[in-house]
């Protein structure tokens, strides 16, 4: 990051190599929209480049990069809501199926897995934006409460509360899935 602040564009290449997949999976899980993922991943790295000088190098990098990605995803979410009334238009058919089939057991197991995955996605999508972000950052990006607090601009206690409530809702919604 210091290299990037000093104007070495090679540093941007290194940054992209290191962070692309984490950002890509975060953006995809947040938007659940493959067609927008590429666009938002690119925009995240553009913003990183443009705001490199604002990054405090004494702080951790991951909360900063995820703050940028979160803001970009949030803007899209709000824009979509304004444009097409997203809340009304999302139904099962809008949620993409597996991007690529990774399992191979049997058709029955595949179908069961796909069904379960669909339920998980729908449950996460149904959470309000703040809960959804906290869940994705914690469960899928493995971030600590402190780092999530920095991304969400709230206290650690606030993150705990959000995750507690999100868990409660998710448990209710996913109770039909056999453990």
């Amino acid at each position: 990051m210091i290299e990037l602040q000093n104007g070495h564009t090679r540093a941007l290449d290194i940054l992209i190599d290191r962070w692309e997949m984490r950002i890509r999976s975060f953006v995809y899980r947040y938007t659940q929209d493959v067609s927008w993922t590429d666009e938002l991943v690119q925009e995240t790295f553009v913003k990183i480049y443009q705001n490199a000088s604002k990054f405090d190098t004494s702080r951790k990098f991951s909360p900063w990069i995820f703050t940028i990605a979160t803001n970009i995803c949030r803007n899209l979410h709000r824009w979509k809501k304004r444009r097409v009334g997203l809340d009304q238009s999302i139904d099962d058919s809008d949620l993409p199926l597996n991007i690529e089939d990774t399992s191979a057991a049997t058709p029955f197991v595949d179908a069961q897995k796909a069904e379960q995955e669909q339920q998980v996605r729908k449950a996460i999508m149904s959470l309000s934006e703040h809960y959804q972000t906290a869940v994705i950052l914690h469960y899928y990006q493995g971030m600590s409460y402190e780092d999530i607090a920095e991304v969400l601009k709230c206290s650690v206690r606030g993150v705990e509360t959000r995750l507690y409530r999100a868990r409660k809702t998710l448990k209710q919604k996913l109770s039909a899935i056999p453990v």
Binding site: I16, Q116, L174, V179
Partner: peptide
């Protein structure tokens, strides 16, 4: 713990974009 296991069933298999560097620089 059980919730965590259920959530972990949502796997995504995304591919790296080999042109990402170029696209980002072009957008900048």
């Amino acid at each position: 713990k059980e919730l965590k296991n259920i959530l972990s069933t949502w796997e995504v298999d995304l591919k790296k974009d080999p042109m990402l560097h170029e696209k980002v620089k072009s957008r900048i």
